[in-house]
Simulated assay, not measured.
Amino acid sequence: MLSLTLTADLVGVNELQPNDTPENPFWYTFKVQCTSCREIHPNPVSVSRFEANDMSGSRGEANFVWKCKSCKRESSATIKSPPVPYQQSSPPTRQKILEFDCRGLEFTEFSPEGEWLATGTESGSKFAGIDLTEGEWFDYDEKAGEEVSIKDLKWEIRRN
């Protein structure tokens, strides 16, 4: 099992999470490595927890099925549960966002491409369409009358 963890400095917002619903699935983007031959796929891959792919020679399904070009082995990954919202803390702490069951592959690097959501800490204002690809985000909470931000993002993929 692997976990995607995040450490971030949230100011004025809480409950940072990907916008991930059956109607609007979030595509988690990773670099992937074969655990057999250690080859790293040259292109990032995207995984949705709402997509099911058949695995060869099996009745099973996985969210992501991949065949390594080097050693020809088929590998799979399944997202175990919905994403867990990141909670604001001071100082920022590492928190698990997502958990994967990986067979024959490892995700080595995460890219936060896609739409993220957050909630104003004091006001309860909903922030949607947050783009974290630049590593930080700034906005203004009209209800609270203050600037809000997300910065110092550190993504890690860890073994459970």
Rank of each mutant, 00 (worst) to 15 (best):
S111C: 05
S111I: 13
D101Q: 10
T133F: 08
G114I: 12
T133V: 15
F127Q: 09
W116S: 10
E122W: 10
D131L: 12
C102H: 07
L105S: 03
P112E: 05
E106S: 11
K126E: 14
E115H: 12
F127T: 10
L132C: 04
A118D: 01
E115S: 15
A118H: 03
P112W: 03
F100P: 00
I130Y: 01
K126F: 08
G120K: 06
G120S: 07
I130M: 02
S125C: 04
E122Y: 14
A128R: 13
G104M: 09
A118C: 07
T119K: 13
L132Y: 03
A128C: 10
F127A: 12
A128P: 01
E113H: 10
W116F: 15
S123I: 03
K126P: 02
E115Q: 13
G120P: 04
G124E: 08
D131I: 14
L132V: 07
T119M: 04
G120I: 00
F100Q: 01
R103I: 11
T121M: 10
F107H: 01
A118T: 03
T119F: 01
F110G: 00
G129I: 14
E115V: 12
R103D: 10
R103E: 12
S125N: 10
F127L: 12
T108D: 02
G120V: 03
T121F: 08
S123G: 11
W116H: 13
F110W: 09
G114A: 10
P112L: 06
E115A: 14
T108S: 00
F110Q: 05
G129T: 13
F107V: 01
G124M: 08
D101Y: 08
C102W: 07
T119D: 01
L132I: 05
S125E: 14
G104N: 06
I130D: 02
K126W: 05
T119A: 02
A118E: 05
S111K: 13
S111G: 08
D101R: 06
K126D: 09
G114L: 10
F107N: 03
T121R: 09
S123T: 07
E122V: 15
G129L: 12
F100K: 00
S123W: 08
D131H: 13
L132H: 03
E109N: 11
L117R: 07
G104L: 11
T119I: 15
G124C: 06
G129A: 13
S111P: 00
C102K: 00
F100V: 09
F107A: 03
R103V: 08
A118S: 11
F110E: 03
E109W: 07
W116D: 09
G124T: 05
E113F: 15
A118Q: 02
E113K: 11
F107W: 02
G120W: 04
